[in-house]
Computed example of a mutant assay.
Amino acid sequence: MANKAFRDIQLMVKFDGSNYPSGKYGILMVLKKQMLLSLVDESETKPE
């Protein structure tokens, strides 16, 4: 699984400061694919 995540990140457009929308979209798609988006967007609550 780690290899797939690393490959997905390698395929993303490199963020250079002028391409924020595409960089943001790429990060969100990788997080969603790896089922980690809920940790970032705070839709999953911290365990007690």
Rank of each mutant, 00 (worst) to 15 (best):
R7S: 15
V30E: 06
L28Y: 09
S18A: 08
Q10E: 04
M12F: 00
K4E: 15
A2P: 11
Y25G: 07
M29F: 11
L28H: 09
Y20D: 05
E48L: 14
A5K: 06
L31G: 07
L39K: 08
M12D: 00
L31C: 07
F15H: 01
D41M: 02
N3A: 15
L11A: 12
L39T: 05
D8H: 11
G26C: 01
S38T: 04
L39I: 08
K14R: 01
E42L: 09
Y20N: 01
Q34V: 05
S18M: 08
K14S: 10
V13G: 05
G26D: 08
S18C: 00
L39Y: 15
I27P: 00
A2V: 12
E48T: 10
V40F: 10
V13N: 06
Q34E: 15
S38Q: 03
E48Q: 14
S38P: 00
N3R: 15
F6W: 14
F15R: 03
K46D: 09
M12V: 05
K33Q: 06
F15N: 00
A5P: 03
E42P: 04
S18N: 08
G23F: 04
L28E: 15
F15K: 01
A2K: 11
L39Q: 07
S43V: 05
T45K: 13
N3C: 10
G17R: 05
P21Q: 02
S38I: 02
F6E: 15
A5M: 10
I9H: 04
Y25K: 15
P47F: 09
L31H: 02
M35T: 11
K46V: 13
K14W: 05
L37W: 07
K46W: 11
D16H: 06
F6P: 03
L37T: 06
I27D: 05
N19M: 03
L11M: 09
Q34T: 09
L36E: 04
P21E: 01
E42G: 10
D16V: 01
G26E: 07
S43Q: 05
Q10R: 05
Q10N: 01
A2T: 15
G26A: 10
N19W: 02
P47E: 08
P47W: 06
R7I: 12
S18R: 08
V30C: 10
G23E: 03
L39E: 00
G17L: 00
M12A: 06
I9D: 04
K33V: 10
K4A: 15
F6R: 15
L31S: 06
N3T: 13
L28I: 10
K33G: 05
E42F: 10
N19E: 01
